[in-house]
Nucleic acid binder design. Structure first.
Length: 422
DNA sequence: ACCGGAATTA
DNA sequence: TAATTCCGGT
């Protein structure tokens, strides 16, 4: 897709053209499968996965994948692809996070530290344009991987569960092989670089740097909500084909988005639909003052997903052989002038290719933080309440988080997923 | 080990 | 279309 669509979203400042995926809806109602980027967002919205993937605290719209392997695993569960690896997952993901802005001014080029940077919509940032063609680390994304907290890498138990499908949660294989995980509070030497995906660079102006959804009810400046939202989110039309039009505040001179409360409300509503679409527990849905989530017509059978996704895939068959007719014909490349993706992923971890969680597996799963709290609560998605969805103490610095302590710090009482015992 | 392309598939 | 998978290059 080198050629980005020429359809700028309404309200797109500077006439930026966002990636195609940003325009399309999450997925066709009942048709398309869940999109990877949506899945990522789901994880981001769940605290249960904060150990795997979470919003970066310093920067809004920036999230880090602490456990690429785990993310891949979860994704594999979701798609019933036991063989899913981060390598596989990263393929689409890379593209996913590849922006193809029309102006080619500031592509999200990851720095050496494996970070994705989504250039702020503000194209006139002096610092932004520092290096055309390459991501210019404004100030948020220096090329210091270590600055990130690789020093605080904790890999606690695997929170797994997740997603309203409530099917693949049974696995709970967790990463037993994870070994110590920071029991000493110090990451081993080289675990896996956390991937940082700064969506928007906005140096601390938002009180709650956890999720774009975790917006505080308090109005931003000028009575508008300063709700930084990731491009994917903000640009997701959703069922209502509503696309929030973040307007840059001329005053700030920076990439500060201002949403009207009303629009935001609408937007959140759309998000609610998404939640339902993907069987997300309402708890994940951010609360918004005055936000009412009317009966969404997008509800779908929750039991849609297979109870036992275990699918034995045929041997690799070695593919169809790429030796097709090769011949000399290939000299001509069909695709021409296709700007290659400029984003690179760095994470990578391949750890072990442990199998998924076959139902027959007698192996005991490691303990998970959620432990035995789940199961039951068949009310898929009836959970509401939960005030502090994202309300997390949020220590100023999350890296130094004590390994074990962090676990206990968060009550793992989310019965969201019912064990669904057949 | 990571990155990326490309063919295959749902 | 997007995702999955394979495979080669660096």
């Amino acid at each position: 897709m080198g050629g980005s669509r020429g359809s700028p979203l309404p309200g797109t400042p500077q006439g930026y053209h966002f990636p195609e995926w940003a325009y399309k809806t999450e997925s066709s109602p009942g048709s398309r499968q869940i999109q990877l980027w949506h899945f990522i967002l789901e994880l981001l919205q769940k605290e249960e996965f904060r150990h795997v993937i979470a919003w970066q605290q310093g920067e809004y719209g920036e999230f880090v994948i602490k456990d690429p392997d785990e993310v891949a695993r979860l994704w594999g569960r979701r798609k019933c692809k036991p063989q899913m690896n981060y390598d596989k997952l990263s393929r689409p993901e890379k593209q996913l996070f590849t922006w193809d802005l029309t102006p080619s001014s500031a592509p999200p080029v990851p720095t050496a530290s494996s970070r994705f940077h989504f250039p702020p919509l503000d194209s006139h940032s002096p610092t932004e344009d520092a290096q055309p063609g390459r991501f210019s680390g404004p100030s948020l994304v220096p090329s210091n991987p270590e600055a990130l907290g690789d020093g605080g890498e904790r890999k606690p138990e695997l929170p797994e569960l997740e997603d309203g499908s409530s099917d693949w949660r049974r696995g709970v294989d967790l990463m037993a092989s994870r070994n110590a995980v920071g029991a000493g509070g110090i990451n081993h030497q080289k675990r896996k670089p956390e991937i940082m995906l700064p969506l928007f660079t906005r140096p601390g102006i938002y009180p709650d740097p956890h999720s774009p959804f975790a917006v505080s009810p308090l109005p931003g400046r000028g009575g508008v909500l300063n709700v930084p939202i990731s491009p994917a989110l903000s640009l997701t039309p959703t069922l209502f084909s509503y696309s929030p039009s973040p307007g840059l505040s001329p005053f700030t001179g920076s990439s500060c988005f201002s949403f009207n409360p009303e629009e935001m409300k609408h937007y959140l509503h759309s998000q609610a639909c998404s939640v339902f679409n993907y069987h997300l527990s309402p708890r994940t849905f951010p609360r918004y003052p005055g936000l009412v989530v009317p009966p969404l017509q997008c509800q779908m059978p929750l039991e849609e997903q297979p109870q036992f996704p275990i699918k034995l895939q045929p041997p690799p068959v070695g593919r169809k052989n790429r030796e097709r007719l090769e011949s000399a014909e290939e000299s001509a490349t069909p695709q021409l002038a296709s700007p290659p993706p400029r984003v690179k992923v760095e994470p990578s971890v391949d750890k072990e290719a442990e199998r998924e969680e076959p139902p027959a597996k007698g192996k005991d799963k490691n303990e998970k933080e959620e432990g035995s709290g789940m199961a039951a609560a068949p009310g898929v998605g009836l959970e509401e309440e939960k005030g502090p969805v994202f309300a997390r103490p949020a220590a100023p610095s999350w890296h130094p988080t004590p390994p074990a302590s962090s676990q206990a710090a968060f009550p793992a009482e989310e019965p969201q997923e019912q064990g669904e015992s057949s």
